[in-house]
Amino acid sequence: MAVRVVAAAPLLALVVTSAQQPPPPSVRYEQHVFAGGNPPPAGTLENPLAGDKRAAADGEKLFSAFNCDGCHALGAVGGQGPSLADGRWRYGGADGAIFQSIYYGRPRGMPAFGGVLPPEAIWRLVTYLQTLTPATDPATVSW
């Protein structure tokens, strides 16, 4: 629910000011987003559990209990769904972007877990994913 409040605030501002002057940009792009991905939401969501080891361990359990590993594989290294352990993000890797991917789902088959998990559990999942260290990814592969 917190997400909706944050998103609504700039919209409200837009309605009030648009009669007199052009609306200010409501979204600031703070990070690179791949073409085809969604822009980060207006405002910023910060992970209240960032860096919390116990929350990360809980998140790992949730990752299995809610069948996330069925698509993204054990260790989130990628299965039918993309790798979440490679440090690269189709829909943005900021706290709020990962949260939204889980809460609302994504169009290419990521289910929305917002009705299944409370926001606090989603933050534990985000915390777990943020602890995963990307494997070395050399630009050149040679044989």
Partner: peptide, 19 residues
């Protein structure tokens, strides 16, 4: 089959890199 065809045979998705 995802298990057989890990991400190393694709180049169209820079946001999904797998061993």
């Amino acid at each position: 089959d995802w298990a057989l065809l890990a991400g190393d045979v694709r180049s169209d998705d820079p946001a999904d890199v797998r061993p």
